[in-house]
Structures are given as C-alpha cells and as structure tokens.
Amino acid sequence: MTTEALETKPGMTRLVEPAHGDAIGAWLRPHRVVLVLIAAGLILLMVLSMRWDWLPRYAGQLCLGLWRTIWLLVASVALGFCFAVPLGLVQVTGPRLLAWPARGFCTLIRGTPLLLQLWLLYFGVGSLFPQFPAIRDSVFWPYLREAWPYGLLSLTLSFAGYEGEVMRGAFAGVPRGELEAAHAFGMSRFTALRRIWLPRAFYRVLPTLGGEVILQLKSTPLVATITVVDIYGVISHVRQDTYLVYAPLLFLAFVYMGLTGILVMLVRFLEKRIPIPGA
C-alpha cells in the first residue's frame, strides 16, 4: 500500500514511462511501417552503392579519434562546470569587483564564435609564447607546443561562459526562504552554500545541463581545425586520402547521432534520479 501511495504522488506522474504496449503500437501504425521500410531501404542503398573499403583500414585511427572526442567532451564539461559555479555565484552574490568581470566574461564568450576563440588562443596567444624565454624554459613548454591544450582550454572556457550564465539564473532562482531557513538553523554561509544553495541550484540546471552537454559535443569537432585529430579529424584524413565525397561524411554524421543518442539516454537516467521532482 505504501509503495503504491509513493508511486502515485502527484509530482511523480511526469516520470512514469508510457506502457510498453503503446510504444510498440505507435511504431506499428501503417504509415510508420512504410517510412521505416523506406529509411531501411535508403540505408541499404548507401551500404551497397558506396565504397566502404576504407573502413577497416582506418578502424584503429577511428577508435582513437572517437576516444579523443569523448575525452575532450568529458574533460571540458567537468572543468568548465567547475569554473561555471563560481562564475554564476559571484554574479548573484559577489562584490561588484568580482561580479562585473564575471558578467563581462560570460558576455564575451557568448558573443563571439567559438572558432574565433579557438584560433585566437592557438594562433594568437600560442604565437606570443615563444617570445618569452621564461615560458620556453618552463616545464609547461612541451605541453604548450602541442595543440590539444589549446583546444581543451577554449572548449572549457566556452562551456564555463555558457553554463555560468545558466548557473547565475539557477542560483538566483532558489527560493529565498530556504536560504533564510538555513541561516536560522545557524549554518555558516559556506555550509548553507554546500548543503542547500548549490544542490538546489544543481537540480534546477540538470534539465538544461543535458542540452548544454549535447551542444558541447557538437562543438568538439572544431578542434580539428587546429590539428587535434579527433573523430572529425580522422574523417578529414580519410576524405583527403580517398577523395570520397559521401561515405565518410555520412558515417561521421551517424557517429555523432549515436553519441547524441547515448547522451540523451544518460541525461534521462540522471533526471529520474533527482530526489525532488519538478525542482
């Protein structure tokens, strides 16, 4: 009885999945069956009429490129989110000396194309470094001569800029009463932030966070323009080597669709685990 009562709490209805029979029934409507058959036919035509012999030759490189894409995505999202929390927080509660630069940073990142930021860092800042002997002699120099740190840095800054703006809204949207209650319980400002403000703000951004991570995935191929060989870079090599027009690019599109699909499922899984539905 108690479990049933839990399951039918009003806030939970949103999370209940449609019954399986309905989902299969929706796919079996006649026009859908025809459309699915046409799609399958098109894919079969693609497989049969296009050249795919390059696929086994480049399999190793493709896996490596895919790994680089995923690695860049995960690292830049994790690091960028760590930047975004203070960026959002100081805009809501910080002194003006911190709030203004934070707002300026978000505007700057959101107002210019990522490709320009990436090229500014790689060609612009990267070309300034060798002029300073102190940098050339430092332990970081071997890293600064490679391309991927610039790619990771610019992806991280971009994610921080966009997500900082989202976090600002989330922090501002947590009901004032909850923070006052934390204060009344004698929590210090830091404890209230750690126990109340940050978790509540995090639950609020979780649905948009999924969208932001997918946008970030779609930004990662830009690093191929500064010679980081991610999955897009590998496909560019294939296109240059084989002069094929369609097959490699279509393959790439399918890979990204698969990655997006996996991300969407992960986000759905996470959203189901939010302790406060509709927060």
Binding site: P221, A253, Y256
Partner: peptide
C-alpha cells in the same frame, strides 16, 4: 539538432 553544425556544413557544402 543531433549532428554538429560543422559536419552539416561540410556535408551540405561538398556533398
């Protein structure tokens, strides 16, 4: 919305 803009642009531009 699932495929990166860069890939779409290269795909439509060349293909």
């Amino acid at each position: 919305r699932a495929v990166p803009e860069l890939v779409l642009i290269v795909l439509i531009y060349y293909a």
